[in-house]
Nucleic acid binder design. Structure first.
Lengths: 215, 215
DNA sequence: TAATAATGAGTGAGTGGTCACTTATTAAAT
DNA sequence: ATTTAATAAGTGACCACTCACTCATTATTA
């Protein structure tokens, strides 16, 4: 499962960018501070100090404090996230298993790992989402892409097999995501370790069979 | 279903409190502004203006800006939420239905209505949760109380009836909450209307039977 | 009852401090 | 030598919070 995490992808895109070492340090420092203290409670002074750089240097490249936030979140939403989704979908499509339970457990495990590898960035995103309503719809649109993708086809195959209810994919993904989030959100927000194997097993157990007792 | 919404309860507790009309206006103004702009982006000047009151008046009662936030969130978490849960449980115990599906649909509908009636307060709570990790565990503890309560017994009865898997109640509630949240969160954060009847029907359909097709 | 005193909510002009952002100056790179 | 990067000392706006004072109401006194 060759999924790269965001930190890696972020570093790569930093290298590719024509930003100087110091400007890259600014972004890395901002990433840490925004995640730890939140955007509003991080001062540009804090950022400059953490990056071991003067405040003027911060403003040379990023004209405003919001510009720094954009420089972090926009690549995440428009490049890293789609790229990660694509890699994931290809992976999954190739690893399609005969039973959906097996497939789902792999997929869930994969996504949980990705999320935990990227707590920092997700924390910033969550903070922004609660303040910026249109981020919600933006991410919703990115999620909608799954439906028109190899992964969508894999899932549809299970429907045709009779292994999966014939609900709209959007609805199915909504429920799976929601269940996965009940395990992830507390860990992303409050920290602590998650037993991914256990959590993904439990998730599939519920998501597939619901709360009716097995006969 | 006599469940009062939070706005009512909030107003009631304001009336009961020995706060003067102006101090009540401060809290009401803060509630609106914190919800709209977020705590950090609301100044005490903003609050005073919106409440048509001097800044000194704001600080006469609430010694700090954080004090205002506490005055809004603490009653919500420690009085309003438990009170709402209690009323809800009593309601439910009285209306306990023979099948769990019916029961669940009522319960889910009830909770969705409560949440939508109180978007403002929930938005503030969500904003704070992303910054204040220990709020997560605090709310988790409140949720745990449900388990040791009449509602817990109602649910346990369905387990003994063989209508509900014998998982720990905490796990069952986790999944139901997660699924409900997939409908609620977008609406609370981004606005828009929710067809509660439809949503609660769909929720129960999934939560009870999962994604395996009915034979 | 009339005059006076005490009370406390309310006021708004400060106050010190922080913040995002600028600019004059210096160092480095080409 | 000239352009570019980096610095660090500003700068004004704004912020949370304070305080000396007002004034309407209530309690006390005569």
């Amino acid at each position: 499962m060759a999924n790269k995490n965001f930190t890696t992808l972020f570093s790569e895109s930093l290298d590719q960018s024509d930003l100087s070492a110091k400007q890259q340090a600014v972004l890395r420092a901002s990433l840490e501070l925004f995640s730890q203290k939140g955007f509003d409670r991080t001062s540009t002074r804090d950022i400059a100090d953490r990056a071991a750089v003067s405040e003027g240097t911060v403003y040379k490249q990023f004209k405003t404090k919001d510009g720094i936030l954009k420089a972090i979140l926009e690549p995440f939403i428009h490049q890293v996230l789609p790229k990660a989704v694509t890699e994931f979908m290809v992976d999954m499509a190739q690893n399609a298993t005969p039973t959906i339970d097996e497939f789902l457990e792999k997929a869930v495990k994969n996504r949980m790992k990705f999320a935990l590898d990227n707590r920092q960035q997700l924390r910033i995103l969550l903070q922004e989402i609660t303040r910026n309503a249109n981020l919600v719809s933006l991410i919703g649109k990115e999620a909608a892409n799954i439906i028109n993708s190899p992964l969508g086809n894999v899932i549809r195959k299970y429907q045709e097999d009779g292994q999966l209810v014939r609900w709209p994919l959007q609805r199915i993904i909504q429920y799976i995501s929601g269940t996965v989030l009940t395990y992830l959100l507390p860990k992303v927000l409050a920290g602590g370790e998650l037993d991914i194997d256990q959590a993904s097993k439990e998730t599939v157990e519920f998501v597939m069979h619901g709360l009716k007792p097995a006969k």
